[in-house]
Design a protein around this nucleic acid. Sequence first.
DNA 1: CATGACTGACACCGGGCAGTGTCAGAAGAT
DNA 2: ATCTTCTGACACTGCCCGGTGTCAGTCATG
Lengths: 227, 227
Amino acid sequence: MSVHQPDESAARRVSGQYAGKAAATRQRERKTKLLAAGIELIGTQGFTATSIDAVCGRAGLTKRYFYEAFDSREDMLIQAYRAVAADLLRAVTQAAAPHLHDSPRLVRAGIRATYDYVRAEPAKVRLMFIEALSVRGQLGRTYVESMNGFVELLLRLTKPFLAPGASTDAELRVMARGAIGALIHLCQGWIASDFKQPIDELVDGTERIFTGLGRELKIAAWMQDGE
Amino acid sequence: MSVHQPDESAARRVSGQYAGKAAATRQRERKTKLLAAGIELIGTQGFTATSIDAVCGRAGLTKRYFYEAFDSREDMLIQAYRAVAADLLRAVTQAAAPHLHDSPRLVRAGIRATYDYVRAEPAKVRLMFIEALSVRGQLGRTYVESMNGFVELLLRLTKPFLAPGASTDAELRVMARGAIGALIHLCQGWIASDFKQPIDELVDGTERIFTGLGRELKIAAWMQDGE
DNA sequence: CATGACTGACACCGGGCAGTGTCAGAAGAT
DNA sequence: ATCTTCTGACACTGCCCGGTGTCAGTCATG
């Protein structure tokens, strides 16, 4: 992580230019490459089967740069996980943005965006939803904390529609975590079955789960009690 | 698996008695011991960190018997998984049995039984819900197939209450898978947070998710539209 | 062109572990 | 008592991989 950085303290270093780029730029680019290679490999072979040499090979770099960018193999996994989680969170947030006023559309857009992302980036998703689970230690905490990010997003987005007092906060959080869990589990199954099931069936089913939750929480838009 | 079995074909073997037990009995007992040791270690240290030597050490046996019982480390994991999944399935089925006539009670009993099981057997559950996910190959299929077992159970138990035609079969399955996913995810989180959250909060929240689904599916017992 | 940072290839060590083989001694059979 | 099987301990090989170090060649700078 800090071994081969340009020796700023030597006061002799002048520009750090190399191949037309500043030292920091090159370093960042290498790290990005390694991260991409790592994500791809972890997401396809699994973390256990992903050796550092393999990551370096795929990135077209050598071990030296791996240890320049990461402290260890696990450190890479954590950083990869963070990057991927942020990416998905961004995608969903963005898809939800146009529908902040309309809870059914909001939910559907979020669900759809998730499945689209899974379809488009199976390796990333596999890393995030499968590989990350089984690593103990630091990542366990990271995983939980990141899941909370999704739960918070869901709560924040749907809070405006909630009838106040219909549920305790604890119950609400449990339900939100459960809803996220349903979605994740369906994504896992979808990946495991190689996307055999049509995406629309998944979106529809997932939507109805959320709709049921909405009814349960007495959200007006879902309470058209006749049908 | 088949290396050190008594040589039945030699027609010279007479009783196979040893320590007062038949050869097959001893073999079965050893396998049970190894399986228990394996489950415990995998469920606490993780599969990757569980070496064959460690399993043997904990079981008080040696490698020879490991390879008598299993083909490989992965084979052990698969068999452990199968045993655990069957165990949980049995526990839930049993808890649900007295309530086949009453869908709300049925659901609540199933949910409660699951959390109780998680609480009582965290190692087994960790193996089943976390470690099993990240192993590719054979186990991937086993995992999916076993999840289907739970989905089938849920469908079978709730089918009597369904209003016919309210959903397509595909949608219904998606929703059931989602519901199972919600439950599993909540269990995972519960384990990850060391059972900090009171079990009743979890049961209540989970129940409301299922209740919402029931409403969505127009199950009469949950349609008391007034409240 | 001379100096020094930067780069990539590769050698090397050490540890851990899967899987196999050996052997002496205990437990049963006759 | 003798022979056979069963048992447990352990040695041993081979492999993979994480992590570190070395070195010759390249590029920028003055």
